[in-house]
Design a binder for these strands. Structure first.
Lengths: 134, 134
DNA sequence: TCCGTTCTACGAAGAGTTTCGTATATTGTA
DNA sequence: TACAATATACGAAACTCTTCGTAGAACGGA
């Protein structure tokens, strides 16, 4: 099968786990990621192999540092999150963000403060949507 | 590996596609699903095999109808959606529904009407959250 | 220089997902 | 009854994801 290098695909669960660590500590070596890992313990070569594959896929960038490599996420956390949400909205919510939002609220019951923040964002979008009727 | 039949796992992408058809037309036969399929064309036995596997996993129920089987989703659309959203919130948003909601709005720009509906839901949750401070 | 440490590279195994070919049973009809 | 159509069951191939063992290169200290 061909590889599509034009746009980065959404990360798999294990890849996302690694990206989370890289967003927190960009420019980490494999060893550093190993030692700061909080998830389930992985072998060193397992993590290395994942990073090699992610590099082939274009999910991470790396630079040499002595004999080791330092890895960073190729896309920002926000972009990646948007990609994941978009995929889920399309696959499970027929493209309707509204429906996903309703289920998110039902699933996680945000605190009063969080609800207020969401409402603030919402009002911002309401104003903006009025101006651009596309 | 052991099978966990206690709670239904989240469906895979191909499984979700089938579930969407079953929520729309419960009690469908394989042939009916084949013919009403809008996605990419699948072979008959491919779809049949998927349904057999989903039956083993407990994702669908089936009843005999003559020599054929009629399939229905084992869980409702809403439950399944909540499961998928919960998984994504945990894996990519550190458990914060608020952050996912913000990205969903950014990704799909809901219409003015949808925004108003979301805000209405939000206000409902704000009231309820006030009453139950857990 | 030699040895131990630490790194990358490579290959492959195991699990899960998705696809489909083939075999077999059942039904309805001429 | 015999045939054609249509159904399920079964097994395996192709693909992806995840894990890790082994090999070999590079570095630093005794």
């Amino acid at each position: 099968m061909e590889e599509d290098l034009s746009k980065p695909r959404n990360p798999t669960p294990a890849e996302l786990e690694i990206l989370r660590a890289l967003w927190k500590s960009p420019g980490s070596t494999v060893r550093e990621l190993m030692e700061s890992s909080t998830g389930k313990p992985q072998g060193y070569t397992t993590l290395l192999k994942m990073l090699q594959i992610m590099h082939e896929k274009g999910l991470v960038e790396r630079q040499e540092d002595g004999k080791a490599h330092r890895y960073s996420a190729a896309s920002g956390q926000s972009e990646t999150r948007t990609g994941l949400v978009t995929d889920l909205i399309n696959r499970a919510f027929e493209g309707a963000a509204k429906t996903l939002v309703m289920h998110a609220l039902a699933a996680k019951r945000p605190s009063r403060e969080e609800l207020a923040e969401i409402r603030k964002m919402l009002e911002m979008y309401e104003e903006r949507t009025e101006e651009e009727p596309k």
